[in-house]
């Protein structure tokens, strides 16, 4: 890899300092564990003039979790999140998702905020400078065309592959954003604006987060839903370090023999994490073939994975559906 380009590193100690630094230079990049951003900088994918390291901001490093609610700071490490007993007990999908990310050393470094804002990935994007140049640079950098989806007519199809987002989506999380204009709360799903087929925004898909200039993701909040069971699982080429081929978070309620609530969210497949729409129509009866056939149809319609180095897109879509079925079956049968 290349040597790092010149940049200035700021290390704020308080959130107020971080917000001021970000407001003064909205082009500055926020640095968590560096497991994604530093790699991208080393690959010449980006060359920010200023980095703001958020890992020294003590007020962003707290986990408050009990049976009623969860509040997570953006600089909490993925290792600390995965090991937290209250999170494991009351928000298992989130703990399982955190424990599944990359490898143990990456989890010591990576942060909640960094994983939620993870740059979208693509076989034509996460490559060295010379590789990308030799392949006519893709739309997400300086090129004119999305090579992974040549018929996309100027829309980027790079894939969102953070693992926390689907788990938090099925748990109904909100995020707190702080910027020059103050703080605001947002349903987590509204953070993600990468291309979706049903979305008529008409953008080029290169912007994948709805953050306003100068805003920082500071906290995640979840209010626990009584009786909601949740889990997370993913398929990878090997069980460590790799990004997901497909990841699935599931949450459901069972009342007697009846499936009373069902939520599924996918990562590693689309330009944004996908909270599957239409699952409410599958609820109200037993967990039978009708539910699984309906689930299959929803996955086919809404999950649209692209190829990676190792797998074609249609394989990723199929394993996403299989994982979803396995998780739902397991959660429905549990205790």
């Amino acid at each position: 890899m290349e040597a790092l380009p010149e940049f200035e590193l700021l290390r704020p100690r308080t959130l107020a300092e971080a917000v001021d630094a970000r407001a003064a230079d909205p082009a500055a990049r926020l640095l968590g564990g560096g497991t994604d951003l530093v790699v991208n900088i080393r690959r010449g994918i980006e060359a920010p003039g200023r980095l703001i390291d958020l890992t020294g901001v003590a007020e962003l490093m707290t986990i408050k979790a009990d049976a009623q609610a969860l509040e997570l700071g953006a600089s909490v490490s993925l290792a600390d999140l995965a090991a937290n007993e209250a999170v494991r007990a009351h928000y298992p999908a989130l703990a399982e998702a955190a424990a599944s990310i990359a490898g143990p050393t990456h989890r010591e470094m990576g942060t909640v905020g960094g994983n939620l804002c993870l740059d979208t990935r693509c076989i034509y994007y996460n490559q060295s400078d010379w590789w990308r140049a030799a392949n006519h640079n893709c739309l997400k950098t300086t090129g004119q065309m999305c090579h992974v989806a040549p018929k996309s007519r100027g829309v980027c199809f790079a894939t969102f592959s953070g693992d926390l987002a689907p788990a938090l989506l099925v748990l109904g999380a909100e995020i707190e954003l702080v910027g020059p204009a103050g703080a605001r709360l947002l349903p987590l799903g509204e953070l993600y604006i990468g291309h979706a087929r049903h979305d008529g925004s008409g953008g080029d898909g290169k912007r994948y987060l709805s953050l306003r200039p100068g805003e920082i993701v500071t906290r995640v909040r979840v209010r626990a839903a009584p009786g909601l069971r949740s889990a997370y699982d993913k398929i990878r080429i090997r069980r460590s370090i790799e990004y997901p081929v497909a990841g699935v978070a599931a949450a459901l309620k069972r009342e007697g023999g009846v499936l009373a609530d069902l939520r599924l969210a996918f990562t590693g497949t689309n330009p944004r994490p996908v909270l599957l729409a239409g699952t409410e129509k599958l609820c109200g009866g037993a967990l039978d073939d009708r539910v699984f056939a309906g689930l299959d149809a929803l996955v086919r319609d809404q999950v649209m994975a692209m190829k990676t180095t190792f797998t074609p897109g249609h394989y990723r879509r199929r394993v996403a559906g299989v994982l979803a079925k396995r998780l739902v079956t397991r959660l429905f049968a549990a205790g």
């Binding site: 560096g34 530093v38 790699v39 080393r42 490898g103 050393t105 010591e108 470094m109």
Partner: peptide
Amino acid sequence: CDGGECGACTVLVDDRPRLSCLTLAASCE
């Protein structure tokens, strides 16, 4: 690998493993 994929550069920072190829020296203040 020089890109966070192999672990050969692992060191301990405050007793916990870190990849030194993706850590800025100045962040270890």
